[in-house]
Each structure stands twice: as structure tokens, then as C-alpha cells.
């Protein structure tokens, strides 16, 4: 939700010496992404996806680096990052398990699946297990209503699920 306001004036930003955008990555973006858009800024979402995939989050330092690469302000990058659900400022687990909670899935019993996973993992939705292995999400329609109740396990849409099947699918994750 884009209107959630967080105090930023007192926020500590952790920094590391090694940049998030390596010269190699920048060269790749310059070659593959930038020419696809008439403005450099068009490459922002693809770059954020790439970073989210590799770092499991978009740290503030990375936002600054991206802003310099695309000639926009860090605030503009933060604006975009904070708007979209799939970009996280704090790292998500090595695996992301998202249970659909929209109308077809609820009608077909998503609550039992979600509750079972919460019990099993010992976390609430939108939390990550202490070992950093799994982040559990409850998301709006995943676009697989014929598979209700369904879940998105990393890149895979799976369903229809029983609570036990869902738990097994999470167990399989390494």
C-alpha cells in the first residue's frame, strides 16, 4: 500500500563497501535493457526484479546505486520499490510461499491451507522462519482460480491443494 508513511529522517541505512550493482551487471543492463526503452528509467522494474531475485531484497544502498545508474533520484526509486508488493526492503526467505486468499480460493478452502502452513512453519503470514528458509505470504488473486485453493511456490503455481499437500510441498524445499 503506497500511502503507508514510515519515518525516514531517523532511519539508519546500512552500507557495505561492495556495490550491489557490479560493473559487470551495469554493463549487462546497458546492453540488454537500456536500449529497449526510450528513457533510461524504463529499465527500473527489470533491474529491481533482477536485484530482488539475487539479493532477496532491495536495500537502500542499492536504491541509491540504481538511481545514479538511471539518472533519477533515490527517492524516485524508493517510491517505485515501496509501491510494488514483490519488492522488499528487508530480505525475504530463500523460498517464498504465497497462498492465494482471493474469492475463488477462499470459497474452495484456502483458510485450512494457510492455517496449516502457519502452524507447521510456526510463523504468521508475511513472516519469515527464523532460519531464513521460508517466507509465507497470503496474496490476492494469483490468477490460477481453476486450481483453487492454490499457491505460488517460488515460480510455480500449484493447486488444487489440501493442507497436507501444501505442507509436503513446503517440506520439499531445501
Amino acid at each position: 500500500m503506497s500511502w503507508t508513511v514510515k519515518p525516514s529522517r531517523t532511519q539508519e541505512i546500512t552500507k557495505r563497501t561492495e556495490p550491489y550493482l557490479s560493473e559487470e551487471a551495469k554493463a549487462k543492463y546497458e546492453k540488454d535493457l537500456i536500449p529497449r526503452y526510450p528513457e533510461r528509467r524504463g529499465a527500473l522494474l527489470p533491474i529491481l526484479h533482477d536485484l530482488q531475485h539475487h539479493e532477496r531484497c532491495i536495500p537502500h544502498q542499492a536504491m541509491v546505486e540504481i538511481s545514479q545508474f538511471l539518472n533519477i533520484t533515490p527517492g524516485e526509486v524508493l517510491d517505485t520499490v515501496s509501491f510494488y508488493e514483490e519488492f522488499h526492503v528487508e530480505p525475504v526467505g530463500r523460498h517464498v510461499v504465497a497462498v492465494c486468499q482471493s474469492v475463488a480460493c477462499e470459497a474452495c478452502g484456502h483458510a485450512a491451507v494457510l492455517d496449516h502452513l502457519k502452524d507447521k512453519l510456526g510463523i504468521d503470514e508475511h513472516e519469515t522462519t527464523a532460519d531464513g528458509k521460508v517466507t509465507l505470504l497470503a496474496l490476492e488473486c494469483l490468477g490460477a482460480c481453476e486450481k483453487a485453493p492454490c499457491m505460488l511456490r517460488n515460480d510455480e503455481l500449484i493447486g488444487p491443494l489440501t493442507p497436507e499437500q501444501a505442507a509436503r510441498l513446503v517440506d520439499e524445499l531445501k
Binding site: S102, V103, A104, E140, C141, G143, A144, C145, E146
Partner: peptide
């Protein structure tokens, strides 16, 4: 974008 609950035809 097909994010409307119940819609999955374009997929």
C-alpha cells in the same frame, strides 16, 4: 496483468 479475482484466461 490479469489480476482480477476469478480471471485466468490470458494465462
Amino acid at each position: 496483468d490479469e489480476a482480477e479475482p476469478g480471471t485466468f484466461k490470458d494465462r
